[in-house]
């Protein structure tokens, strides 16, 4: 009898504890007001991208003198933080807004980490291959059709960890981007955005 009571008590406790586990929920990415984390999260990337875009458009450097749009490529974006960041998380938003601004068109044929879309070259390899004859030649990309980029956007994301006091640390994330004229090698525009965080020494920034 006593054993049965103990067993019942155990199962009741277990079910109570299990039911207290936090439920899975979707993040409200539009109006999220959850507390900050020491690592970089999507809100930090949104903020950095927004400030970079604002700076680029406000600078007026992307306004082509003779009208039209600049052809731009994304060069190397170095991640020098302790986190595994896909730099596309930052650049995708920036590229999207640059193209929507009507001042820039991005190229998928040239990039810092290889062609953003390898298919550009795959179809050319197909054209030059044995099976190329199978295709209607009017539908294959001819030679000398690719447009070379005029501008390149490159940058770096790095962090600095500082000891704030006995219990807290400070982590500073620096987002640096620059636009270079590939013809002359001159730098058109440059910006740095700082996102600083301060928290417990027990928090990890990776």
């Amino acid at each position: 009898m006593r054993a049965k009571r103990l067993l019942l008590g155990f199962f009741l406790s277990a079910s109570f504890l299990l039911s207290c586990a936090p439920e899975t929920e979707n993040i409200d990415t539009v109006n999220e007001q959850a507390k900050a984390v020491m690592a970089l999260d999507y809100r930090d990337f949104n903020r950095a991208a927004s400030e970079m875009i604002q700076s680029m458009i406000q600078s007026g450097k992307l306004n082509k003198p003779d009208g039209g749009r600049y052809v731009m490529t994304t060069g190397r974006i170095v991640n020098d933080t302790m986190q595994r960041i896909d730099t596309d998380q930052l650049m995708a938003k920036i590229e999207q807004d640059l193209m929507n601004s009507g001042q820039v068109v991005m190229t998928s044929a040239v990039g810092g980490a290889g062609a953003p879309d390898q298919m550009v070259y795959d179809v050319r390899d197909l054209r030059d291959s044995e099976v190329g004859d199978e295709f209607d030649p009017d539908t294959l990309a001819a030679k000398k059709q690719l447009i070379a980029p005029e501008l390149s956007i490159t940058g770096k994301i790095f962090q600095r960890n500082l000891r704030y006091d006995k219990k807290r640390q400070q982590v500073e994330y620096y987002f640096q981007l620059k636009i270079t004229d590939l013809t002359s090698g001159l730098r058109f525009w440059q910006e740095e955005v700082l996102i600083g965080k301060r928290g417990s020494n027990k928090s990890v920034a990776w």
């Binding site: 109006n31 949104n46 991208a49 927004s50 875009i53 999207q96 929507n100």
Partner: peptide, 9 residues
């Protein structure tokens, strides 16, 4: 729609 439309401090 814009990526720049985000909450800024």
């Amino acid at each position: 729609d814009s990526a720049a439309s985000t909450w800024l401090p």
